[in-house]
C-alpha cells in the first residue's frame, strides 16, 4: 500500500529534513526556562522518550515569550524551537488557533498550505508523510495546548499517547 502511494507521490527525506528544521535543531531558539514565566508545562512521548518542557510568559492575554527545554530527535526539538518564535506576540486566542492549524498540518499530508499562513512552520509539513514521526512533531504543540488552556482557565483532556501536564502556574 505504501509503495503504491509512494510511486505516485515519491516521499523524499528532503521533505522531512528541511533546512529550516535542521537549522533550528542545530541552533535552537529560546532554549531554557524564562524567568518571567507565568505558566510552565511539560510533556513526553512514552514510545520514544522525547520530552519537552515549556515556560510561557503571558501578560494581559498576550504571549510575551516562550522558552523550552527537553531532549529528543531533530523533529521534536526543532518543532519546539520554531513554535517559540512563531507564538511570541500572539494573543492567547491566536496562539491556540495557530496550534490547531499546525497540528492539522502535522497529521494530514493533504493539508492545504495556501489556506493558512503558517510562515516558517510550513517546513514541518513534510512530517505528515512520515507517520512514525508525527508524534515527534506534535509533542511541543500538545504541551503548548496544555499551557494555554490552563492560562485560559480551562483544562485539557489528557492525550494518553502524549501525556502533558502543567508544572507551575
Amino acid at each position: 500500500m505504501t509503495s503504491n502511494r509512494e510511486s505516485q507521490n515519491p516521499i523524499d527525506l528532503d521533505d522531512l529534513y528541511r533546512d529550516v528544521i535542521l537549522d533550528h535543531y542545530r541552533s535552537p531558539r529560546n532554549r531554557g526556562a524564562r524567568d518571567d514565566a507565568t505558566i510552565s508545562a511539560e510533556g513526553f512521548n512514552p514510545s520514544c522518550g522525547d520530552e519537552i518542557q515549556l515556560s510561557v510568559a503571558i501578560l494581559d492575554g498576550t504571549v510575551n515569550g516562550l522558552g523550552f527545554g527537553g531532549s529528543g530527535c531533530s523533529i521534536s526539538q526543532s518543532s519546539a524551537s520554531m513554535m517559540t518564535e512563531a507564538m511570541t506576540g500572539r494573543s492567547l486566542e491566536s496562539a491556540r488557533e495557530m496550534s490547531k492549524h499546525v497540528q492539522q498540518m502535522l497529521t494530514d499530508d493533504t493539508f492545504d498550505l495556501d489556506a493558512v499562513d503558517l510562515g516558517d512552520l510550513e517546513a514541518l509539513s513534510g512530517v505528515a508523510k512520515f507517520p512514525v514521526r508525527i508524534k515527534c512533531g506534535l509533542l511541543a504543540w500538545k504541551v503548548l495546548d496544555q499551557a494555554l488552556a490552563n492560562a485560559s482557565g480551562e483544562s485539557v483532556s489528557d492525550d494518553s499517547d502524549i501525556p502533558t501536564r502543567v508544572t507551575s502556574g
Binding site: 527525506l13 522531512l16 529534513y17 529528543g72 530527535c73 531533530s74 514521526r133
Partner: peptide, 13 residues
C-alpha cells in the same frame, strides 16, 4: 549526536 530516531528514519530510506 544525531538522535537515534533521525538515524533510523534516514536508514529506513
Amino acid at each position: 549526536d544525531i538522535h537515534s530516531h533521525d538515524v533510523a528514519t534516514i536508514l529506513d530510506r
